[in-house]
Simulated assay, not measured.
Amino acid sequence: MTRIDATFERLKSEGKKAFVSYMMAGDPDEATALSVMRGLPAAGVDIIELGLPFTDPMADGSTIQLAGQRALENGMTLEKTLDMVRAFRSDDDTTPIVLMGYYNPIYNRGVDQFLIDAKEAGIDGLIVVDLPPEEDEELCIPAQNAGLNFIRLATPTTDDQRLPKVLQNTSGFVYYVSITGITGAAAAQAADVAPEVARIKAQTDLPVIVGFGIRTPDVAEEIAGVADGCVVGSAIVAELASGKSGDEVLSFVKTLADGAHSA
């Protein structure tokens, strides 16, 4: 059982939905990013989704693209991202961390070495958005064998014929993308999300977490109310980009977590 599995079991026993927060490693700088990351659990975050900076983040909107550019310009690398996780783990051995990014940096490091390093650093799961199920032998299955969850995205365009393929080697949870498009592009609507979550849950026992388009506590509550939890990314990254202090950002995160947990 991974930390992700244990977290969902705990939340289920407490009758609570999950709140997942996204942040970009190294944005706006290494020290601030680590300080914010360390404060996320106390702000109510159940699972941390940590972005791995990459030069061509095709699934991300401008907010997260710019965060990745800032991190790269500040010298953030895959190794420094893993060091950030190691530093976090020196104080927190329970909060799950999901590394979200693209395959190129992992491929460049070598899959076998990456998986050894990620596991040692304290990563619990991976979301690699540019590896489809047809490429599961490339990273998904080796990651599962190494004890890491491999979390797949389902979208509004994932039809009933495609869905079983998406789910077949997924573990940890299913990430449902609430809108068609890139991160931060539009607002999520619970009325649209609810039937899609039900459709996915009819084919898997995994928790279904909804992301994209969630910016306020009210929307977090509405979306978590029709799923097993929600993810907020661009709204948090935008707070950091605006120059707010780490404490101010964490206060904002807490309002979102409180919204999701009240669902």
Rank of each mutant, 00 (worst) to 15 (best):
residue 7 T to V: 12
residue 102 Y to I: 05
residue 151 I to Y: 06
residue 43 A to Q: 11
residue 23 M to A: 10
residue 223 I to D: 02
residue 219 V to R: 14
residue 204 T to G: 08
residue 151 I to E: 02
residue 49 E to M: 10
residue 151 I to H: 10
residue 78 L to I: 02
residue 198 A to R: 13
residue 123 I to S: 02
residue 129 V to K: 03
residue 144 Q to G: 13
residue 202 A to E: 14
residue 70 R to P: 03
residue 78 L to K: 00
residue 248 E to L: 11
residue 199 R to E: 12
residue 247 D to I: 10
residue 46 D to V: 08
residue 13 S to E: 07
residue 229 G to W: 09
residue 69 Q to F: 05
residue 248 E to G: 06
residue 47 I to P: 07
residue 67 A to S: 09
residue 187 A to K: 15
residue 17 K to L: 05
residue 197 V to R: 07
residue 152 R to E: 14
residue 202 A to L: 13
residue 214 I to R: 00
residue 177 V to Q: 03
residue 34 L to E: 14
residue 162 R to N: 00
residue 57 P to R: 04
residue 39 G to Q: 09
residue 55 T to Y: 01
residue 185 A to P: 01
residue 226 V to C: 10
residue 155 T to D: 03
residue 241 A to C: 12
residue 248 E to Y: 10
residue 54 F to H: 05
residue 100 M to H: 08
residue 172 G to I: 03
residue 214 I to F: 00
residue 95 T to W: 07
residue 29 D to A: 14
residue 197 V to S: 06
residue 245 S to D: 14
residue 141 I to K: 13
residue 201 K to R: 15
residue 90 S to Y: 09
residue 195 P to R: 10
residue 222 E to H: 01
residue 224 A to F: 00
residue 12 K to I: 04
residue 136 D to W: 08
residue 168 Q to Y: 13
residue 215 R to D: 06
residue 35 S to R: 14
residue 210 V to W: 04
residue 138 E to R: 15
residue 75 G to Y: 00
residue 190 A to D: 08
residue 120 E to V: 14
residue 227 A to P: 01
residue 84 M to K: 05
residue 69 Q to D: 09
residue 79 E to C: 06
residue 18 A to K: 01
residue 146 A to W: 05
residue 181 G to L: 04
residue 200 I to R: 06
residue 239 E to F: 10
residue 91 D to L: 15
residue 75 G to R: 01
residue 257 A to P: 12
residue 149 N to V: 06
residue 100 M to D: 05
residue 218 D to F: 03
residue 92 D to R: 10
residue 153 L to F: 15
residue 100 M to N: 11
residue 245 S to M: 11
residue 58 M to A: 15
residue 156 P to Q: 11
residue 5 D to Y: 07
residue 82 L to A: 03
residue 246 G to C: 09
residue 53 P to K: 04
residue 59 A to G: 04
residue 167 L to D: 07
residue 151 I to G: 07
residue 145 N to W: 09
residue 259 G to I: 06
residue 134 E to P: 10
residue 240 L to K: 12
residue 62 S to D: 13
residue 263 A to D: 08
residue 79 E to S: 07
residue 24 M to H: 11
residue 82 L to N: 07
residue 185 A to E: 14
residue 77 T to S: 11
residue 47 I to L: 11
residue 252 F to W: 13
residue 152 R to F: 08
residue 120 E to C: 11
residue 260 A to L: 10
residue 122 G to S: 13
residue 214 I to T: 01
residue 172 G to R: 05
residue 74 N to V: 00
residue 146 A to E: 12
residue 200 I to K: 01
residue 33 A to E: 04
residue 207 P to C: 06
residue 37 M to V: 09
residue 99 L to F: 03
residue 42 A to N: 08
residue 248 E to S: 13
residue 185 A to T: 04
residue 237 V to R: 07
residue 79 E to L: 05
residue 69 Q to P: 00
residue 252 F to Q: 09
residue 3 R to K: 01
residue 98 V to F: 06
residue 232 V to Y: 09
residue 178 S to D: 03
residue 16 K to T: 06
residue 168 Q to S: 14
residue 229 G to V: 11
residue 7 T to K: 14
residue 13 S to H: 05
